[in-house]
């Protein structure tokens, strides 16, 4: 296994109290595999990724428990210098908002080349040549001329390509993409996702794709982890989850997508709002919004039950959820 996250907890100590952002997350990614982490804002999907990358602000963040095994070595107990070597070389991250993730006062060539200067000790001149190669690779037209341009001179889609190029520079074995296409238009989104999938195949990288878009997930993922209130509520290979969700939250999300045969009818809507992470409801965090909730859901936190091979659901009534088709 390339990456294995085990029982990860992340909390933030704020003036209002302790925000429990991640409450025991387990997932794993193999080489060449795409794991989609699906969740709404505040579900802890990005915080988990930041903990894996080691870019969490600590304090106020704190990891009281858990292990993050990368190629069988625990990143959390590692020395800072060792971890810095892994970051960038072995694992890289693509952020949502390319404009604010790129430095506006440096040319893209300098920013791409910096990877080689810092990690490989190349000269500036060689690094620049490599930057042009990279830009070619992510299909930026006229790369040679554009290597001296600043980020604002590129369009949104181009900037996201530059982010991808930067993540790929040192050919890492794991890429974490945090909502890489959310800020882009659909036609550009298709270009960028395509490019990412192609490069992943080429380099046999593991990819963690963080998103809230059920469509994007269906398009590219091998397996899915659905997060709610800092916990994984369902994991499954991609085909099974769309066919028969085993958690009422997943089921509700899928049902609330507008469908042709429901036109003119009311959409199914999950009632209520996502919980406040300062006061996560006792028992199953989804119970106040769940159509199937019973007393046990209000008291007992559901463990991840094995539903089928490679499938787990954190619902006391996963059987009923599966059967109620």
């Amino acid at each position: 296994m390339l990456l294995e996250v085990r029982d990860l907890h992340v909390e933030f100590h704020t003036r209002d109290g302790v925000v429990q952002a991640v409450n025991g997350v387990n997932y794993s990614v193999a080489e060449g595999e795409t794991l989609a982490v699906l969740g709404e804002s505040g579900s802890g999907k990005s915080v988990t990724a930041q903990a894996v990358m080691g870019i969490l602000d600590m304090p106020p963040g704190k990891i009281p428990r858990g292990e993050i095994l990368f190629k069988d070595r625990d990143l959390l107990t590692m020395k800072k210098e060792e971890r810095r070597k892994i970051r960038g070389q072995e694992m890289a991250m693509i952020f949502q908002d390319a404009l604010s993730s790129l430095n506006p006062v440096l040319t893209v060539g300098e920013q791409l080349g910096e990877m080689y200067v810092v990690h490989r000790g190349m000269s500036r001149k060689d690094a620049k040549a490599r930057a042009v190669e990279l830009m070619d690779r992510v299909r930026i037209p006229a790369a040679k001329e554009r290597v001296g341009n600043y980020p604002h001179q590129f369009s949104g889609g181009m900037r996201q390509r530059i982010m991808i190029a930067m993540a790929l520079a040192l050919e890492p074995s794991l890429i974490i993409a945090d909502e890489p296409t959310t800020a882009l238009d659909v036609t550009v989104q298709a270009q960028v996702m395509d490019l990412l999938a192609e490069l992943q195949r080429e380099l046999n990288m593991g990819l963690i794709l963080i998103t809230h878009d059920l469509g994007v997930v269906a398009d590219v993922a091998d397996k899915i982890a659905v997060m709610y209130a800092g916990r994984i509520v369902e994991t499954s290979p991609v085909h099974d989850i769309y066919k028969a969700p085993a958690h009422p939250y997943t089921k509700g999300l899928l049902a609330s997508i507008p469908r042709l045969d429901q036109k003119g009818q009311e959409l199914y809507a999950i009632k209520g709002l996502p919980p406040n992470l300062l006061h996560i409801p006792p028992g199953c965090a989804f119970n106040p919004r769940c159509p199937m909730a019973q007393d046990v859901c209000r008291t007992d936190v559901p463990p991840l039950y094995d539903v089928a091979e490679h499938r787990q659901s954190a619902c006391h009534f996963w059987k009923e959820t599966l059967d109620a088709r």
Partner: peptide, 16 residues
């Protein structure tokens, strides 16, 4: 078809 939409999910909702 995606399971669990429309009438069925609402029935469960109502019951709850």
């Amino acid at each position: 078809p995606v399971p669990g939409e429309g009438g069925q999910a609402e029935a469960a909702d109502r019951a709850a």
